[in-house]
Amino acid sequence: IRKQWHEDITQDLRNHLVHKLVQAIFPTPDPAALKDRRMENLVAYARKVEGDMYESANNRAEYYHLLAEKIYKIQKELEEKRRT
């Protein structure tokens, strides 16, 4: 379902936000690492998460909020795993 606010969101912005999700899960300073085949699954997962939020959000603010919440949860989980 195409929503009115979707018209304001460019593909570049969506790609940028997918990249932010990927960085939250696997922070790497090396952009070449993103071309690694093992990263493809991670990028696919991040695209799916972003797509789900894009579809479920009712406006741009909610879209950003859902993504920020997801990134926060991912970082929290990773922190907890590092501690144990």
Rank of each mutant, 00 (worst) to 15 (best):
R83G: 13
P29G: 12
F26C: 15
K3V: 01
R2A: 03
L21Y: 00
A44C: 02
M53N: 06
Q11C: 04
H6W: 04
K70F: 10
Y72G: 14
N41H: 11
P29S: 15
L67I: 12
L67K: 04
D30G: 10
E62K: 04
L78F: 10
W5Y: 06
I1W: 02
H6E: 08
R14P: 02
N58M: 04
A46S: 01
L17T: 15
H6D: 01
E80G: 11
R38H: 07
E40V: 07
R38A: 10
E40W: 04
R47P: 01
E77A: 10
H16P: 00
E40N: 10
R38L: 05
N15E: 15
H6N: 00
K35A: 11
P29C: 14
R83C: 13
T10F: 02
R83M: 13
A32W: 08
I25L: 14
G51A: 14
Q4R: 10
V18R: 01
E69N: 08
E62H: 07
F26P: 00
G51S: 12
T28V: 10
E55H: 07
Q4K: 13
E79S: 10
A61E: 15
K76I: 14
L66C: 10
A61P: 10
L78T: 13
L78N: 15
V43F: 09
W5D: 07
D12S: 07
K3T: 05
H19S: 11
T10I: 00
H19V: 03
L67A: 09
M53D: 00
L13W: 09
A46I: 01
E50I: 04
A33L: 09
N15I: 02
A44W: 00
S56L: 09
S56Q: 15
N58Y: 03
T10N: 05
R83Q: 13
E77Q: 10
N15F: 00
I1H: 00
D52G: 00
P29Y: 15
I25W: 13
I74E: 06
R38P: 08
P27C: 09
L17D: 00
R60F: 12
E69W: 01
Y63S: 02
W5G: 08
K76P: 04
L42F: 08
K20R: 09
T28G: 12
I1S: 08
K81S: 13
G51T: 13
I1Y: 04
L67T: 04
F26G: 13
Y45T: 01
M39F: 12
A24S: 09
A33N: 11
E69R: 08
V18G: 08
K81F: 04
R37P: 15
N59K: 03
D36W: 07
R2E: 08
I25G: 06
L78V: 13
R2M: 09
D36Y: 05
P29V: 14
R47A: 01
M39E: 08
Y54M: 00
D30Q: 08
G51V: 07
Y63F: 06
K81W: 05
Q11T: 05
D12F: 06
A68C: 09
Q23L: 07
Q4F: 01
R2F: 10
E50P: 01
K3L: 02
L67F: 11
K70A: 08
I71D: 00
T84S: 09
E77S: 11
